[in-house]
Simulated assay, not measured.
Amino acid sequence: MKTNTLYLATLIFSVSCSSENEGTSPTYMELTEAVYASGNVYPRNEYKLFAQGDGVLIRQLVTEGETVAKGQLLFELESNVPDARSQAATNIYRQSEANLAASSPVLKELEVQLRNARTRQENDSVNFFRIKGLYEKNAASKADFERTELAYRSSRNDVAARQQALIRTKNQLYVELQNARSQYASSTDDAKNYRLRSYEEGKIYEIYKQPGELVRRAEAVALVGSPTKAYVQMAVDESDFTKMKLGQKVMIKVDAFDQKMYEAVVSKIYPKLNKLDQTFRVDADFTGDAPDGYYGLTVEANVLISQNPKALTIPKTYLYGADSVWVKEENGEKKKIKIQKGAENLDLVEVKGGLTDKSIIFKP
């Protein structure tokens, strides 16, 4: 529906006229200027619940109209791929933990090899220093001395190498454990993607999928929003958009509730023009009662632009052209004059200048 500017008027003083032939006089009236807009009611904190993975919907734990708590489980999907990935990650993580534990067979084998190397080093050390003492007293040959010295150095190097191997293996197993833990956490999070929970407390307004249906990644499963807080999304005509200001009072009629009137205030003005219907979006928050708990109710709204408790007005049918009227002069003759117009509606025009409440005007 194309929006139009409306002006609501309430009579303060009676119209001083007798007949069309005798003319009529401008009348003071309370004149309220308002911009008409159509719109809909939507819940606050609205969001769509999207699937984070591909799977079949196997459990639907809520229905439309039901209120849910934050973090509540709403839907469950089933998929073989994440289950297999999760099981593999779990097995690798457990094996990595076992490899680095105190009872690890890998580490125990290296520790046994290190102990054996140290035993050999001790024996070679005792033998070397014994032969060395004899060699210094010329009681042992040089060949025996060099042989025992070589064996001692070899066993000492073997101990150092096995110590490094044990340290290197522990570090490697630690890195593997961290990687396995990361993969395990990732697979656990991936499994959570197949259990859809609510982000915030809200009401289920619509469910897009039924149990047994395939759900793709990033596909919406349900629409959720606040169960108690709502706002009005209005479409204001391009010609009236410049009159919109934050905080303006809005009178809203909802046909679904026996045309009950609600009050709201303009809370947000969007600067982008909708080229399909040449309107701008304007939102308003309810200030009192609100038709909450429903999604998309159609409303009609009047945004109050200005109020003049005492405006000088004439019937619109007395206008000649855009801004002229026929007025009675002192000699009784009729004369066409221009007036300065203000606000107007389908019936009345506000006179800013050119006439007084004593003037007598005639229909053209």
Rank of each mutant, 00 (worst) to 15 (best):
M251Y: 06
M251F: 00
I252S: 05
I252E: 02
K253T: 14
V254Q: 01
V254G: 05
D255F: 08
D255V: 10
D255L: 10
A256E: 05
A256V: 11
F257T: 11
Q259C: 01
K260M: 04
K260R: 12
M261E: 04
M261V: 13
M261H: 12
Y262M: 06
E263D: 05
E263V: 09
E263Y: 06
A264N: 09
A264F: 03
A264E: 07
V266Y: 02
V266C: 03
S267A: 13
S267I: 05
K268F: 08
K268V: 00
I269W: 10
I269C: 14
I269F: 09
P271K: 14
P271F: 09
K272N: 15
L273F: 09
L273V: 12
N274W: 11
N274S: 14
N274L: 14
N274R: 08
K275Y: 15
K275V: 15
K275E: 15
K275H: 14
K275S: 15
D277Q: 13
D277V: 12
D277Y: 07
T279A: 09
T279L: 10
V282I: 09
V282R: 01
A284W: 03
A284Q: 04
F286L: 10
F286C: 10
T287G: 08
T287W: 03
T287M: 04
G288N: 15
D289P: 09
A290W: 08
D292H: 14
G293A: 03
G293P: 11
Y294T: 12
Y294W: 01
Y295I: 03
Y295V: 08
G296F: 07
G296K: 10
L297N: 03
V299Y: 02
V299P: 00
V299W: 00
V299Q: 05
V299G: 00
E300F: 00
A301E: 01
A301I: 05
V303Y: 03
L304M: 11
L304N: 02
I305D: 03
I305Y: 04
I305H: 00
S306D: 12
S306A: 11
S306L: 00
S306F: 01
Q307K: 11
P309S: 06
K310I: 07
A311W: 02
A311H: 01
A311I: 04
L312Y: 13
L312C: 07
I314T: 14
I314A: 15
P315R: 10
P315E: 06
K316S: 10
K316Y: 05
K316D: 06
K316L: 05
K316H: 09
K316A: 13
T317V: 08
Y318A: 12
Y318E: 03
Y318V: 15
L319V: 12
Y320H: 14
Y320A: 11
Y320S: 11
G321R: 06
G321P: 05
